[in-house]
Computed example of a mutant assay.
Amino acid sequence: MNLRQVKYFCKVVESGSGNAAAKLLCVAPTAISTQLGLLEEDLGGQLFDRSKRPMQLTSLGQFFYPRAKELLLQAQRLQEESNRVAIGNGGWLGVGFIRSTLFSLLPNVIRHFREAHPDVHLDLVEKLSEYQVESLHQRRIDVGISRFIGEYERHPDMDYRLIFDDPLVAVLPAGHPLAKQSSFSITSFQDLPFILYPKDARSPYGQKLHAYLREKGVNPTVHHEAIEIHTAFALVGAGLGGTLVSRSMTDNNRSDVVFLPVEGIEISTSLVAVTRKGEQNKLLDNFIEILMSRGRQA
């Protein structure tokens, strides 16, 4: 399958026939027919029901068409952005981030960076910390904004810069009796259902939290596991339990949860910028400078 075949297919759908598409594309009708045949061969099925006039899309064609349109739009955007970079009218920077940074740090960093570099395209890619190094190796991103708890693996070909330490706080349902207190004792998790997150086989984050509580003599019951932090907040807000989150996440305008400092907790999370070692990139350097500056103010 190639973009020409996809383009021909979409033009046939939009114009109503192969002949009409050929006129619009300024090619021979046989070229349309040949490319459609090759596309259908690659896909393993017919895109059009040719027994009907005008031709109608088969179920495969109905599935394929909107996705083909999106593919063509993405290809066009890629070409336009690449052209701008090639002639020096812009640049590109890939930023991997964890969702929790949307609550505080990332919006400020993006705003300040865009003020300094309005013509640079920021490609923002949401990824858990454990997946960011892979994207850095693939050059899908230039920097990963990661969160770790306790010790973490440091790849020898990556640089790790601490943005700031982010203490843990308890999150409770707003209507819970313990939410009226000025602080939260870590031992209270013994009787409070625990919301574990993120639910991902490659992320040890939630398991480290749970293991730490057990080390402190607290063995909370995990009633629910959330894929990401927004879901964890929603489950807490629904009264299904409590959890621990980094303090920077407390500014999220939720009225159904309460955040409390935790008594007896000795660990915190670390927000870290991960980049390829030895990378020479002025745009990246400027982004890191803004990131570290905003982090110092957090």
Rank of each mutant, 00 (worst) to 15 (best):
L196D: 14
K208M: 11
D251T: 04
L235T: 01
S246F: 02
H210Y: 14
K199G: 00
P261A: 03
P220T: 07
F259W: 13
N219V: 12
T221D: 12
G175W: 01
F259L: 07
K208Y: 06
D200L: 08
R254K: 09
S255V: 07
N219M: 11
G217W: 01
R202H: 15
N219E: 15
K180C: 14
K199C: 03
V169P: 09
A201I: 13
D165L: 00
G206E: 08
L244I: 12
A234G: 04
L213W: 08
I195T: 07
P198N: 02
L260H: 02
A174Q: 02
K180A: 15
N253Q: 15
K216T: 13
V258T: 12
F184V: 14
L178K: 14
P177L: 00
S183H: 11
F189Q: 07
E225K: 10
V262R: 13
A170M: 08
S182Y: 09
P220F: 11
L172N: 04
S248I: 00
Y212V: 06
F164W: 10
V171P: 06
I195V: 10
D165R: 00
I227N: 08
H224T: 15
R247H: 03
P177N: 06
I186G: 14
V257S: 04
E215R: 14
V171I: 09
P198H: 07
L213E: 06
T187H: 15
L168M: 09
H176N: 14
V258Y: 09
G239C: 02
S185H: 15
S203K: 05
A238E: 12
G239S: 03
A238D: 05
Q207I: 14
K199V: 01
G241T: 03
Y212R: 09
K216R: 15
K208P: 06
V258L: 08
P177Q: 09
S185G: 10
F233K: 04
N253H: 15
L178D: 11
D191S: 11
F164V: 10
G217S: 04
F189I: 02
N219T: 15
F184L: 07
Y212D: 09
A201T: 11
P193W: 11
H210G: 03
H223E: 13
F194N: 07
V257N: 11
L213G: 11
N253F: 15
E228F: 06
Q181T: 06
A170S: 10
H176M: 05
G241C: 04
L244C: 14
S203H: 04
P193A: 09
V169D: 06
F184R: 05
V222W: 04
S183M: 08
P261V: 08
R202S: 13
L192M: 10
F233E: 03
F164M: 10
F194H: 07
D165Y: 00
S203A: 15
D256P: 01
V262T: 02
H230F: 02
G237A: 09
S183Q: 11
I186D: 09
Q190W: 02
V171Y: 05
L192I: 06
A234L: 11
A234E: 15
G217N: 07
E225S: 08
S203R: 02
Q190H: 10
K199W: 03
R202V: 12
L196Y: 01
